[in-house]
Computed example of a mutant assay.
Amino acid sequence: MKKYIKLLVLLGTFVPTIAYAKQVFTPQDPAWTFTGQAVTVEEIDGIQGIKIGRGQAILNDVLFENGSIEFKMYMPQERAFAYLYFRGENEQEYEEIYLRTHKSKAPDALQYAPVFQSMAAWQLYHGEKGTAAASFPANKWVPIKVTLNGSTLQVWVGDMQQPAMTIDRMGREPKAGWIGFRGFVPRTSDAPFSAYFSAITISPSAATSEVTYNAKSTLPSGQITQWRVSPAFATEPGPIEVIPSKIKNAKWIEPIMQPDGSFELLRSVEVPGDMRNWAAVAKVALHSNEAQTCKLLMGFSDRITLSLNNTILVYQDASYRFDKPRRQGLMHQEQLLVYLPLKKGKNELQAVIADNFGGWGLMGRLDQCDGIEIR
């Protein structure tokens, strides 16, 4: 039976009242479930902590939605990643923040990302949506405080008076779920561990902010929101010139749009677990009252094959690379500029979006176009 931090107490026959209980979890607490490599309880610098190399420490029996999560973290100076998971619905659906331990003071030292189908969409969440600078010294215990208030996330690092990160609208709708920690040391790193975690304190509270999930109300003129998207299919890196016939005849969907006019395919399109590289097709009809050339601004992750009226216009690969050359693969609205030679009447715009890591998304906006109806 799950242990709810948010306890429901019935006062009278029909009127429920919610009581909140603060809980402290030591590294030795039996509530933890350790998985992965090199996850142990050890002492460092005089404090017992959960030491994680490449693994996880999960509080499966705790459901938490709003309030604060506080803990101390001890990080190496070498390249590693230290995660907090929260609002976990299952092993595949949750949210996370993580510290890039080697990037203290860098603009992306802190990262927030929603996770869909076990894959974090960090390439779609950067800047105000997902990254922030923070200073955290190596080889020293550093206090971390995370607050969740409806759709708002704030993170404090060290003894700062103001939060290092504020995300006004997280990627998933608020829902109570499990929490946990993860550590990851890349194989190219000399880090002896990813992080130690200790003094974990969870303090639930009621949400005081709400967000209306209405993506289309604040979009700029020309933003394309009428996409229809195919099921996923297996593919290989490179341009996708032929769409499988079974995909053409399958059921297509309207994706869930986000406030910036983007959509995350993993939110709506299921990817079978045996696919290493996958793709989906997004289509929209552009009805023009005359023949004209229109500017199209596209954001995508990771690879796009763009066609107009069955003619491929461009292929571009923006997937992540650690080096040779270094490339983050971050999606943004002006990532790709294409001039569309529209004919009078109906034009079919098709984007084949392929991915295998870091976030799978698309956004498009027409610019300097008149007499266009998007369907």
Results as ranks from 00 to 15, higher is better:
residue 99 L to F: 10
residue 197 F to N: 01
residue 267 R to E: 13
residue 279 A to I: 03
residue 4 Y to D: 14
residue 102 H to C: 07
residue 348 E to P: 00
residue 359 G to D: 07
residue 69 I to W: 02
residue 170 M to V: 11
residue 340 L to W: 02
residue 13 T to C: 08
residue 260 D to K: 12
residue 328 Q to N: 09
residue 109 A to P: 00
residue 124 L to T: 00
residue 13 T to P: 06
residue 177 G to T: 06
residue 307 S to D: 03
residue 14 F to E: 15
residue 37 Q to Y: 03
residue 337 L to N: 13
residue 21 A to P: 01
residue 121 A to F: 01
residue 124 L to A: 13
residue 107 P to M: 08
residue 318 A to E: 15
residue 319 S to P: 00
residue 278 W to I: 04
residue 224 I to K: 07
residue 41 V to L: 06
residue 220 P to H: 09
residue 35 T to G: 05
residue 308 L to W: 00
residue 82 A to G: 08
residue 125 Y to N: 08
residue 310 N to C: 07
residue 326 R to S: 12
residue 24 V to T: 12
residue 357 F to T: 08
residue 365 R to L: 10
residue 263 F to T: 04
residue 129 K to C: 02
residue 65 E to F: 04
residue 318 A to T: 04
residue 107 P to N: 07
residue 170 M to Q: 14
residue 181 F to K: 05
residue 276 R to D: 09
residue 286 L to I: 09
residue 123 Q to Y: 03
residue 208 T to L: 07
residue 373 E to K: 14
residue 294 C to V: 10
residue 345 G to M: 10
residue 152 T to M: 04
residue 299 G to E: 07
residue 63 L to F: 12
residue 46 G to H: 13
residue 139 N to Y: 13
residue 340 L to G: 09
residue 141 W to P: 02
residue 233 F to N: 09
residue 192 P to L: 01
residue 290 E to H: 08
residue 248 K to A: 14
residue 115 V to C: 08
residue 250 A to G: 10
residue 291 A to V: 05
residue 150 G to W: 01
residue 107 P to L: 06
residue 45 D to I: 06
residue 36 G to I: 01
residue 122 W to T: 09
residue 319 S to N: 05
residue 305 T to A: 10
residue 218 T to M: 10
residue 327 R to Q: 15
residue 227 W to K: 00
